[in-house]
Each structure stands twice: as structure tokens, then as C-alpha cells.
Computed example of a mutant assay.
Amino acid sequence: MNFDPMWTDEARALRDSVRTLLDRRSAVRSAMDSPLGYDETLWSTLCEQIGVAALAIPEEHGGVGASLAEACVVLEELGRTLTPAPMLGSAVLCGQALLLAGTEAAHRLLPGIAAGSTLAALAVSGPDGHWEPACTETGGRLDGRADYVLDGALAQVLLVVAQTASGPGLFEVSPEDVQRQQSAGLDPTRRLASARFSAAPARRLDNGQFPQARLRDLAVVALAAEQVGAAAMALELTVGYTKQRRQFGRPIGGFQALQHRMADVHVQVEAARSVLCAAVVAALEDDDLAAAAATAKVVCSAAFRQAAAEMIQLHGGIAITWEHDAHLYFKRAHGSAVLFGEPERYLPAVFGDVAPSG
């Protein structure tokens, strides 16, 4: 396999196509204020013309039959522009959950998800945000409350990872049988929801012992791609600004102290890109994915937070205005860092053969 599956000739062409479309059509502020929380027309174009939602879904389920690497290329570009889209939650998270379930449910649900016409959401975590099933199953019914459900308020398909007597399982619940409410999150570009289950009828989709840990690792890798793209763009915008902003008769980017700060961020972003590549390869080759995903979670979260912090600092006063996008990158950095569990909970898996704690 190519050392970096995200930079093959095919991946480069995909990256160029997505970037061109997003640069021309993405309007973050109007999208995040829309009823869906994303631009439905742009999402349809991405799915119909480029097939982004179908990339990591096999052809027999209506997908393109590519891999997680190609999906991560798209996620990196979406992260770069902070474009709100159901790529992470519906296409990747729910798509991979159904594939891991390995039952007929994939034939029934994946074609709509791959086409981008079906919005799916996955409920796992409770109020603490840790990747642990917040709901329990008894007699084919679910009880509990799940939080931080991506696009959960309006999803047409609701999947739930719940605890059963024999371990975690993947269930499908009719949205009509669930109390759903949009949550007020830190990041206005990402819609989150809570879902309350009270003896909700549930249909089990897996054959027993659903691999929730692997799904978490795949989710973390996909999120890391978003983080790398956003961190790189935050640095790019900051460098561009320091070349234009003048003080004491010269661009502020010419001052050595600021050059050192931007160089430090550049090193962090490139390190994040490297660990993302290693995590994608681990996912494709099924080679110690837990450690690689945990490393990506820790490194990419730190790189994005640092890039966003320096973006605020080096842009000066304009960075704290609502009109400038710096605060959107800052909020996305801190919101995504704790999504699927805080980076600190992944540290044991980075330094040893210990699974992330939640």
C-alpha cells in the first residue's frame, strides 16, 4: 500500500474536486443558521456529483467501494472550510456502524445513506461525553439518554449503541419513539442533539457483541482528518494575515518572534498530518488501530487547538469579532477535541496496550 493513502493520484483528484466546489459554494454562516444546520443543496451536489457519502461504503450496498482514506480526504476538506455537513455523523459514523454489524440491515439502510438522501444519526454517549453506551436494552426496548448525537434532532434513521446483558449491541429505533432535542453546543457549525429513550421499541442490527471499540477508533480517525484540515487552514489564514498587517513600517510577519510562533504551529500541523496518515493505514490494514487512533486523537486535537489559539492571538482585535471566522475555528477546535471523549482518556492507549477508557 502507498505509504500515504490520502495522497495517491486518485486522492489528489478527489481533494481538488471537493476543494474547488467548497471554495465556490460553501457559505458557513448561512448554513449553520439554516433549519438543517447545513446547506442541503451543497450536500446534494457533493453526493450526486462527487459521491462523497458513498466513498467508504461497498458497491453491493450502493456505495463507491473506496475506503476510509478517501472519506478522510473529504473530511479534511470539509474541516478546512468548517463546512457544516452530515459527512462525519451520517456517512462515516453510521455507515461504518452498519458495516460492522454485518447483517441484512446494511442492505436496507446503506443505499440511502450512500446517496446522501437519508440522514442517519448514531447515539452512544451520555452527558459526560465518554464513548460508553448510555442506554440499556431489556426485552427489545431501550431506556436512557444519549447526548452529543451528531445531527440527531432531524435524522430519519436513528441508530443506538446500547448495553445488553451480553455486551454492547447496535439497535435501530424509530425517531417517532424517541424524545429528541437540539443541544446548545460550543461549536455553532456542528449540530448536536440529545435523545431520551423510555421503553422505546428497538430492533437489534448486529449478531451479538457489537465491536463498539473499533467503531470508536474509526470515528476518531475520521474526526482527526477534520481537525488536520481545519488546523492547516487556521495556520494558512494566520500566515496570510501577518503578511498584510503592518506595524512599525513593516509586515508583522517579518518579526522573528511571530515567525517562531507560526513555525511551531506548522510543525504541530505536519505532525498531526503524519499521525493521521498512520491511523488511516492502521484502519485499512487492521494493524493496532486502537493505539494509532488514540495517538491521532491526542496529537490532532492539540495541533488544532494550538493553531486556533495562535490564530486568535496573531489576528489581534479583529479575531474577537463575530464577523471574523477566527472564533469559529477556535470553537470547532475545542468542540471537536472533546467529541468522542477527551484526549486525556486516550493517553493510556498511546503509551501502552490499554484501550481508551471511554
Rank of each mutant, 00 (worst) to 15 (best):
D9S: 04
E10T: 12
E10H: 12
E10L: 05
L14V: 03
L22T: 06
R25A: 13
A27P: 00
A27C: 01
M32W: 09
S34Q: 06
D39H: 08
E48S: 15
Q49M: 11
G51Q: 07
G51W: 02
V52S: 10
L55P: 11
G62A: 07
L68D: 10
V73F: 12
E76P: 04
G79P: 08
T83D: 00
P86Y: 07
S90M: 08
A97N: 04
L98T: 01
L99E: 01
G102V: 02
T103G: 06
E104Q: 12
A106P: 03
L109W: 11
P111I: 00
A114G: 12
T118Y: 05
A121K: 09
S125K: 09
P127F: 08
H130Q: 13
H130I: 03
G144Q: 06
R145C: 08
L158F: 15
L158P: 11
L158M: 15
V161A: 14
V161R: 11
Q182T: 12
P188S: 07
T189V: 12
A195Y: 03
A199M: 07
A199N: 14
R204C: 03
P211W: 07
R214Q: 15
L215E: 08
R216T: 07
A219N: 13
V220S: 05
L223H: 02
A224F: 08
E226R: 15
G229P: 08
L235H: 09
E236S: 10
G240Y: 01
R245V: 11
G254L: 12
A263M: 07
H266R: 13
R273W: 00
A278F: 02
A278Y: 03
A279G: 11
V280D: 10
D286T: 07
A293W: 10
K297V: 04
A303L: 13
Q306G: 00
A309D: 11
G316D: 14
T321H: 12
H324G: 09
L328R: 11
L339E: 03
F340C: 04
F340W: 03
P343G: 07
P348Y: 13
P348C: 11
A349M: 06
